[in-house]
Design a protein around this nucleic acid. Structure first.
Ligand code: NAD
Ligand code: NAD
Lengths: 220, 220
DNA sequence: GCGGTCTTGTTAGCTTAATCACAACGACAA
DNA sequence: TTGTCGTTGTGATTAAGCTAACAAGACCGC
């Protein structure tokens, strides 16, 4: 049995579906159609059905999808049935906001350790998360079995921090700096470049504006 | 003359190129090849040449690209030759970090007005940016000719804020809330969903890890 | 001026993703 | 039980994007 690999584009949408399904459940809705979902998450209904179908026949024809069933299913797929600890490197402006937020409202992810070079904050606890000096990073990551790190350090130190993370066998990095990181094949990088995001938006508005009619579908 | 429309994927890369070109110039490098650029921004060199070629023949064979010339060119394309004012709605955790950062280090964009409902911060100035009450939003946006807004409000107020922005004829929204916004066709939305980003990263690591060999190219 | 060396610009093929459109099938009412 | 209606799952089609490969052209040392 072929164990089909899920397309990248589909994988990126799974958390969006998962999130909205939980909202439905909170509102005591136990069934949903692809059309209805489409409306809420702004993804074409055919795309949703195709996405779901990669995992088998999850719905019932003439009825739709059973919300609790879908949730249970996606919870496993997305590893949301267990807590994932991640690390934060660089507790400045942005890092502080992320620490405070800490993701645990609607997802089973939390920042369990933070690292910085600033002596004023090192060895304190912020929003319930201990901040360690950089020198302890390797040890802590290994002890706590942390495989994912968020980088919010100044751009010019991003690569060296990354190299340290690689040594500690981190598997994934969420990179908020504008620097494109060099990493070994074993590490996956996800860039979040807010300045880019804004510039791209400006470009689109100035150059694409007039001639996209009602065909505006996926927004990203 | 056909005035070819630039592919969306290319448009998203332009700010990345632009940024790195400026770094090169700061280091007094006046020429660069697609291969060298590729190394730095982690985009295949053929893709870079293709991207550039949409704008005409910008390089010289056997030589490469002239950095100052490229910068001048992209500066216009990306509207970086003039200051773009944007608004920020919701000065909480995340909004505060963005205000402080304010993008003006390496881009010609700045937050020039912020809005909130919290009486404790309304009518103060933070990081040089005035914070107005929500009731003044329409007026300020129009007076300051602001066409782009960043939304960092709690999820449950995101849609109503959006509706207000639409009334003020905003053209683009950078949405940090997990809610997928409903907007008229005239508005472009760019979602930045950090929880999603993390969940997707976790999914990829747990499910794609082993079998992607050295072919790991574009990281996003 | 010339040969060798680089690097572009672009063609062609490939891969991934989105969308249409509808037969198949289950739900539900009578 | 039967017929209608609604919604899925999916083959076929179209669109978008990526990359290998290479001819054409420009540089540079001699
Ligand atoms: N703040 C924003 O809104 C924003 C927006 C877009 C991009 N960014 C990017 O995010 C990154 C962080 O931005 P910021 O505004 O939070 O910066 P910041 O200067 O406020 O914070 C950086 C933190 O990293 C720490 N640090 C420095 N070197 C370190 C090292 N080697 N190891 C560990 N920690 C180290 C500093 O002590 C500081 O606490 C930057 O690369 C910036 O370009 C930030
Ligand atoms: N903080 C993070 O790191 C983070 C990470 C991921 C996603 N987000 C998302 O970003 C959004 C903001 O997060 P936050 O942590 O900054 O929240 P926050 O509660 O700290 O800040 C929200 C701010 O919005 C203001 N506000 C409330 N209603 C408003 C309205 N109708 N108009 C204008 N302002 C209003 C509040 O007064 C407050 O200042 C949330 O949707 C959250 O899900 C935040």
């Amino acid at each position: 049995m072929a164990e089909q690999r899920i397309p990248r584009a589909t994988a990126k949408r799974l958390p969006i579906y998962y999130r909205y399904l939980n909202i439905l459940l909170d509102a005591d809705k136990t069934r949903v159609s692809s059309t209805e979902l489409s409306e809420a998450v702004k993804v074409d209904s055919a795309t949703i059905r195709r996405d779901f179908s990669y995992f088998g026949a999850l719905g019932k024809r003439g009825y739709g999808y059973d919300v609790p069933k879908l949730i249970e299913f996606f919870k496993k797929i997305l590893n949301q049935d267990q807590l994932t600890n991640v690390a934060l490197v660089g507790v400045g402006n942005l890092g502080h906001a992320l620490l405070n937020f800490n993701f645990h409202q609607n997802s089973n992810v939390r920042i369990s350790a933070a690292f910085d070079v600033n002596d004023n904050i090192v060895n304190t606890v912020q929003s319930g998360v201990p901040i360690y000096p950089l020198s302890e990073m390797g040890k802590q990551l290994r002890d706590q079995q942390i495989a994912i790190a968020i980088i919010t350090v100044p751009e010019n130190t991003a690569q060296e921090v990354t190299d340290e993370l690689a040594k500690a066998d981190v598997r994934g990095i969420l990179n908020f700096t504008p620097r494109r990181l060099s990493v070994p094949d074993s590490i996956r990088v996800q860039n979040v470049d807010l300045t880019n995001e804004l510039q791209t938006l400006i470009y689109f508005i100035d150059n694409y504006g007039e001639l996209l009619g009602g065909n505006e579908k996926s927004q990203d």
